[in-house]
Each structure stands twice: as C-alpha cells, then as structure tokens.
Amino acid sequence: MAIAVEFQDVVKRFPGAGYNALDHVNLKIEEGELLTILGTSGCGKTTLIKLINRIHEADEGNIYLSGTNIKDIEPITLRRGIGYVIQQIGLFPHMTIYDNIATVPRILKWDKDKINQRVTELLEMVNLPPEEFKDRYPGQLSGGQQQRIGLIRALAANPKIMLLDEPFGAIDAINRSNLQDELLKIHRQSRKTFVFVTHDITEAMKLGTKVLIMDQGKIQQYGTPGEIIEKPANAFVESLISSGHVDTNYVRNGEGI
C-alpha cells in the first residue's frame, strides 16, 4: 500500500521551550487510513498535524507527502491540496454557507457549474438541504451544523488528505456521535487519508483504522484499535486505555484497508 504521509525523525521545538514539542517522530501513514492521534493535552498532537500543512516548520527531519518532501512544495499550493478542520471551526462569518464551501474551489478557479454541483452534493452528503442552507450565514446555524460545514468546506476541492484537529471537541455528546457516524461514512465512501486528532479515547477507537498514541512529543504506540487494546505497548498506554472505559463494540476493527 502506498504511503500518504511519512515523518522521518522529525523534531519540533518551540522557541523558549526547554523540551521538544515533537521528539524524533517516525511515522508512516498509509493511503486511505483514518489515523486517530490520541494523547493528553500538550503532548504534541496539534503540532504534528500543523507540520503536515506547514503552518509550523520542522526543526529537524523530513516529512513526505506521497513521496515528495513538503519542503519542496510552496506552502500555499500544499495547503490547497489538504483539507484542514479545527475545533473552533473557523467559518467565515461574513460569507454565506455557499461561499464558505466554495472558497478553495474558487481559489483553484473551478468553473461556476462545477462549484455549484460540488456544493450541492456536499450539503446533501451531510443531510443539510442545499436550498435551505446555502444562503444562510454561519451565525444562523447550530454548532453541530457549523462543524458539518467546516468538514465539507475542507473536503470541497477533493484534497487527498484531511487533517482534523479535535473537530468535535466542543460539540454536545449526541451531536458528536452523529458527526462521528457521518465522518465514518464520508471516510468509507471517499477513501481519502484522514488524520484525526482527539483526546477522547472512545472517539479514537471508534473512528480510527489505526490509532497513534502520543505522550510528551513521543510516539507511545501505533497500531489498530484492536492491537492497542489487546497488547498495550507500555504502562502509559495501558493506563490511558483503562481510564477510558472503551466499549469494544464500538471499536473500528478488521476493515482491511
């Protein structure tokens, strides 16, 4: 299976910090996986994904996207090919839902009909009737609806990779569960590579075809949800799992990507 993202001995240190936010990370993410990155606050999850779209730059090591070193790609070009969803959603409040979703396709100069078609298809995918929603402003939507728009806005230009940083973290439990189901559906249909950051063990196990567990900027374990539950690599992973009351019925397993 082709490698979508590869980290080779990556170190990231923020100015003034006495430690590495990411400490010699080596990682291969296969195409089509939904990788969940799990760890406590401050362990370097956000830093890891922001290195992929060059919001941060690595201090040491290299990162490859489908075999190309990302240092050789203009950050702007790189980002237009990567979907990015953040917890605060970041919808543009002065633009309609339509204009929000059309942002990257317009930057990429798609023609009008194609954009129209794409926006309609995306809104339908997350069960928001296009006629009802496309002319609304973000402020007129609920939190869950806004995050659906955040998600499809990131998908709009068909990126090969999606980066999601605790996208459902601020959403109530029932809505979160629905959003997780929709995300699973989108992943199964699109077969894009997803990198999904969370600090919620249940969420990580439910969504991930692979799970990466981190602590203090270091990888603790990398495997399928089943492997991690059955064979925790160390005491940290073991305590993390036992703290999380993971319902094994909801563990994503054996989907054979």
């Binding site: 970041g90 919808l91 930057i107």
Partner: peptide, 14 residues
C-alpha cells in the same frame, strides 16, 4: 478571531 484567520491560511489563501 484568530481561528478564522488560521482557517483561511490553512485552506491555502495567500
């Protein structure tokens, strides 16, 4: 709002 600006840069705006 900084997250709006971050989202904009993250989408590949110059």
């Amino acid at each position: 709002n900084p997250s709006i600006v971050e989202a904009a840069y993250g989408m590949g705006m110059s």
